Simulated assay, not measured.
Amino acid sequence: MGIKKNISITYFTLLFTFLLFQQMKVSACTIASAVASNGHVWNCNNEDGPLGVANFINVFPKSTSMKYGYFTLSYFSPKLGEGSSMQGGMNEAGLTFDFNGINTVKGFDPKKMKAFHFGDEQILPYILGNMSSVTEVIEFFETYWFQNGFVSAQMHVADRFGRFAIISASGIKSVRNGAFLISTNFDICGKEDSTSCRRYPIVTSILKNQDAGFNTMMEICKKTSGESTMYSNIQNLTTGEVWFFSKHDPEVMVKTNICDLLSKGPKSYTFSDLKALIEKRTAFQPLHPTKIELADVLKSRYIGTYMNDYTGKLVVEIHQDGIKITSVDGNSNILLPQSENTFYFPNEDVRVEFTKDKKTNKLTMSFYENGFWIFDARKT
Rank of each mutant, 00 (worst) to 15 (best):
Val297Leu: 12
Met307His: 14
Pro289His: 08
Ser268Ala: 15
Ile278Tyr: 10
Lys275Asn: 14
Asn347Gly: 05
Pro266Met: 07
Arg351His: 00
Phe345Gly: 02
Asn331Asp: 15
Ser263Val: 01
Phe343Ser: 02
Gly330Leu: 02
Asn341Pro: 06
Ala295Glu: 13
Thr326Ala: 03
Glu348Tyr: 07
Thr305Ser: 15
Ile292Ala: 07
Leu262Glu: 00
Phe354Gln: 07
Phe271Gly: 03
Lys264Asn: 06
Gly265Cys: 09
Arg281Pro: 02
Lys267Leu: 07
Gly322Phe: 01
Ala295Leu: 12
Asp349Val: 06
Arg281Leu: 13
Phe343Gln: 05
Ile278Phe: 00
Arg351Tyr: 06
Leu287Ala: 12
Gln285Ile: 14
Glu348His: 08
Ser263Pro: 00
Thr305Trp: 15
Leu274Ala: 05
Glu317Pro: 01
Asp329Thr: 06
Lys359Pro: 04
Pro337Tyr: 05
Thr270Glu: 02
Val315Thr: 15
Tyr310His: 15
Thr270His: 07
Glu353Met: 07
Ile292Glu: 02
Pro346Tyr: 02
Arg351Asn: 10
Thr282Gln: 13
Lys324Ile: 13
Val352Gly: 00
Asp357Trp: 00
Lys356Tyr: 08
Leu335Asn: 03
Glu340Ala: 12
Pro337Ala: 04
Tyr310Gln: 11
Glu353Trp: 02
Ala283Val: 15
Pro346Phe: 04
Ser327Thr: 06
Lys358Arg: 10
Val350Pro: 03
Ala276Glu: 09
Gly265Tyr: 14
Leu261Ser: 13
Arg281Tyr: 09
Thr282Glu: 11
Gln320Ser: 10
Gln338His: 07
Ser272Asn: 04
Lys299Glu: 04
Leu287Val: 03
Asp329Trp: 14
Ser272Thr: 12
Met307Leu: 14
Lys324Cys: 11
Ser272His: 13
Pro286Val: 13
Asn341Trp: 13
Lys324Ala: 15
Lys267Tyr: 06
